[in-house]
């Protein structure tokens, strides 16, 4: 089960999206998140959805991979969708005791579901098309101004690189430990929630012990390769802002402003 998590998984490719500078992609993703929540009517939501699908199509990564990323948060999508159905005003379509389904509620639910799904898929575009090193490098460069406030930008970026690198390693390890404990007769599938949480303790303790041992090894290996905390460090792949990035920025500005325009032109439904 744990192996199916595709979070932070990079899929090498040669598409235009792959070639964009990591910083461009990060900034545009943040802007995207803001604008998908600014959509007030179906027209603007449609613009954003079409735009999202276009971007996903341009990555040349199979759409199934994106659907997989959705599956992880399927529960969240359904839950928020269902909850939203019962909130909101408008014509009452169906009522039972205090629970009412209204037209407003249905529209709310539709908006929330589309927003969360698009958000997840477009975030996946960033992690699927950007190598972890580029991603953390991009973040490091974007956060550089924060060093003025004594934020340890390089250290944060390094921690993220290592975290992304070790997510699959630790997931595999969790799988192994779970199997080992099951082989010893541990029961992890039955019982109420408290019993199940308790059953996880014999998994978590070995996992922590091994994680610390790995950390020790990794620190030694990094020392052997002359790591000294990022002083005078160079990079093999230097990020550089090209015409492609400028093009991407401009097209996104156009699309995002069309959202604002349609918000102003058409009546808000939410």
């Amino acid at each position: 089960m744990v192996r199916e998590i595709t979070l932070g998984q990079y899929m090498p490719g040669k598409s235009l999206i792959h070639k964009l500078d990591a910083r461009t992609k990060i900034v545009l993703l943040i802007a995207y998140i803001v604008f998908i929540f600014l959509c007030k009517n179906f027209i603007s939501l449609l613009i954003m959805s079409l735009f999202s699908l276009l971007v996903i199509f341009m990555t040349k990564i199979s759409f199934m991979k994106y659907l997989k990323s959705l599956r992880m948060i399927l529960f969240v999508i359904i839950l928020t969708g269902v909850l939203n159905v019962f909130y909101g005003s408008g014509d009452v379509l169906w009522q039972w005791w205090e629970l009412k389904i209204t037209t407003g509620g249905l529209i709310n639910a539709a908006f929330v579901i589309v927003r969360i799904s698009m958000l997840m898929m477009v975030s996946s575009v960033l992690t699927y098309t950007t190598s972890p090193t580029d991603l953390t490098d991009g973040l490091e460069r974007l956060m550089k101004p924060l060093t003025v406030f004594h934020v340890k930008v390089h250290e944060i970026a390094m921690m993220m690189t290592i975290a992304l690198r070790f997510i699959p390693v630790l997931l595999e390890e969790t799988d192994k430990i779970m199997n080992a404990q099951k082989a010893r007769g541990a029961d992890m599938e039955s019982g109420n929630i408290i019993q199940r949480v308790k059953a996880l303790v014999p998994v978590l303790i070995p996992l922590f012990v091994s994680a610390f041992r790995r950390a020790g090894d990794l620190a030694t290996a990094m020392e052997c390769r002359c790591y000294n905390g990022g002083k005078n460090r160079t990079r093999m792949k230097v990020l550089h802002f090209s015409l492609k990035d400028l093009g991407a920025l401009i097209s996104c500005i156009v699309i995002f402003s069309s959202v604002i325009v349609s918000n102003m032109l058409f009546a808000a439904v939410i």
């Binding site: 190598s131 090193t133 990094m222 390769r225 002359c226």
Partner: peptide
Amino acid sequence: VAGIVEEDVAFGCEN
């Protein structure tokens, strides 16, 4: 250290 083979190989040189 890094999530891509060639980037890991570059780590020492970058340092």
